[in-house]
Design a binder for these strands. Structure first.
Lengths: 126, 126
DNA sequence: ACGCTTCTTCGATGTTTGTCGAACATCGAA
DNA sequence: TTCGATGTTCGACAAACATCGAAGAAGCGT
């Protein structure tokens, strides 16, 4: 059996900062599941794939991570048998200043109550 | 014969400000043709459908306007023969402060040279 | 009344997308 | 090495989407 030493170890192609396309980012953010992932990531530095508060099959989740990664929104690194995902907040902010923050703020403003926030959960009154 | 007086005159259903959905807006903005429309509109108060610098069939254009209108990004009104489209910049800014401006700025930052800008066309040097 | 301009609606078409289950790969632990 | 936990890749599939051409509707001009 060909021991390719590791297949998941392949560089995990992330786009360079200058390669990040705005339309790709907007598209990546326009899906509910992916937006949840991004919001969750905004509150934590890093997180394993399987630990996100989304309700889809593992393979579907994997697909969404691929979209987010290839659009430059998130970054993934291998750690043992897990894959840790992080927001590329700084990179995005360099490429598109203020964009991520504005989008995130816009989302939170919309879904204020009765929405289990992944990060802080202070009951905000509108 | 029922003179409905006009069919295109129907209110042209636009979502109310509070009805505007962020994910719908992001999706609307994630298409190249629609982004061009929005950019064009950002430079002018109003414009007729057929006068946008996009290269698609009229029916396709109509479809894109529908997406933009139903997501709350643009507003359309009848004027004689034509349908005038305008950006709902103020509404969007009330709903999602800063979003439109940030996205637009992000786009311009990306496509600096060799992109025929719909608005001003001074040869800017990067 | 007739035609011209503008724009929409209606299929049709081919592509992309979100979703799943099954199978596979990797790593750590027993 | 055998297991279990984690994730990915591979079809498959239905729904959504961008696109077009043809046909239709409204209004302006002649």
């Amino acid at each position: 059996m060909p021991r390719s030493t590791s297949r998941r170890r392949l560089p995990l192609a992330h786009p360079a900062i200058e390669e990040i396309d705005l339309l790709d980012v907007l598209h990546a953010l326009s899906d509910p599941t992916r937006m949840t992932i991004v919001r969750t990531l905004a509150a934590e530095p890093e997180r394993a794939c399987g630990t996100f508060p989304v309700d889809v099959a593992p393979s579907t989740l994997s697909h969404h991570f691929k979209v987010l990664r290839e659009s430059g929104v998130v970054q993934q690194r291998e750690e043992a048998n897990r894959r840790l995902t992080a927001l590329r907040a700084a990179d995005l902010d360099e490429r598109f200043p203020g964009l991520l923050g504005t989008v995130l703020a816009a989302y939170e403003r919309t879904e204020e109550p009765e929405d289990e926030e992944p990060g802080s959960e202070e009951p905000e009154n509108e």
